[in-house]
């Protein structure tokens, strides 16, 4: 029982990180119809910015996270304005290739700006171990699960009740009609990129607190991608749950079947799920008039 509890809780914690990044994937896809393959790299860059603030300006958790999230929003806006907006109207394949190129550039920038050493993001919180009986968890792991649930609730409310949320759904549904209704699609795209960068940044910071910042950190983006496919590329809330499912499935496979199965568990899961629901667990069926 203890073993199962350890496996499940660790799975939920890493799954929450996948889930938050998966939300970032879904926010961009929902509003722009694009898969941003630089999502993990953005999380890594924001984590490095947080580490830089913590080692140069202040180690205060609010200063560090606030500063890093402002930087994330700016990064998202710059990427949208400089890199993505010129690609509007271009074939989807070309635009996706641009995000892959962006990922490589961001990945390589780590060594130019920082260095190859892993670094600890020490904010004085998140590294303590809380024990309930024989099962231990770091406070950062508990916090990231709570953060995912808060984001899911926040996005549900945002898309349902806020004007901007409804505008984003309208652009996702049909950007031309939305434009005719007076919605600035350009602005919606910019907000989506900024929000997505900030969301990934949150995941990056939590990851860095629990583990470390390192140039290999971008790989969490690759692990999060199955989560958004599983939840549904256009399903923001579903993507978050997808992350939890992938995290738990990976850990159960690693714990009971052997570590070799851990890496493939998430992908095996999406193959099975997509056979039954090709648009993901929570995604919407795409209907086209022919």
């Amino acid at each position: 029982m203890r073993f199962l509890a350890e496996i499940l809780l660790s799975g939920l914690a890493i799954g929450a990180i996948y889930g938050i990044i998966a939300i970032g994937f879904a926010v961009i896809y929902k509003t722009t119809g694009l898969v941003n393959f630089a999502q993990g790299e953005i999380a890594m860059i924001v984590a490095y910015i947080a580490w830089t603030i913590s080692t140069t300006l202040s180690g205060n958790v609010f200063v560090v996270t606030g500063g890093a999230l402002v930087a994330a929003v700016l990064l998202g806006l710059v990427i949208e304005r400089v890199v993505m907006r010129p690609m509007l109207g271009e074939p989807v394949f070309s635009t996706v290739m641009v995000t892959i190129a962006l990922a490589v550039i961001l990945r390589s920038s780590i060594n130019f700006i920082w260095d190859a050493y892993p670094q600890a993001l020490n904010l004085g919180v998140g590294r303590d171990i809380v024990r309930v009986g024989a099962v231990g968890m770091r406070t950062g792991q508990i916090a990231v699960i709570v953060m995912l649930l808060a984001l899911l609730a926040g996005f549900w409310l945002f898309f349902r009740y806020s004007r901007y949320g409804i505008a984003m759904r309208a652009v996702a549904g049909d950007d031309r009609t939305a434009l005719l209704m007076g919605i600035s699609t350009g602005r919606v795209h910019a907000v989506a990129w900024a929000a997505s960068a900030a969301i990934s940044g949150i995941a990056g910071i939590f990851f860095a607190i629990t583990y470390d910042v390192s140039p290999a950190m971008y790989e969490i983006g690759l692990k999060s991608f199955p989560a958004t496919i599983l939840g549904g590329l256009d399903a923001v809330i579903g993507s978050g749950f997808g992350g939890l499912l992938i995290g738990v499935a990976e850990n159960l496979a690693g714990g009971y079947l052997g570590s070799g199965t851990k890496e493939i568990a998430g992908f095996a899961m999406i193959i099975v799920i997509l056979m039954v629901r090709p648009f993901g667990l929570f995604g919407q069926r795409d209907i086209e008039r022919v």
Binding site: I7, G11, Y211, E219, E250, G254, S259, G260, K262
Partner: peptide, 17 residues
């Protein structure tokens, strides 16, 4: 005895085993 894929960052299930 186990092996992991290069780049793996979470070892919670391995260490639990």
């Amino acid at each position: 005895s186990a092996s992991y894929k290069r780049g793996q960052q979470d070892f919670s299930s391995e260490m639990a085993r």
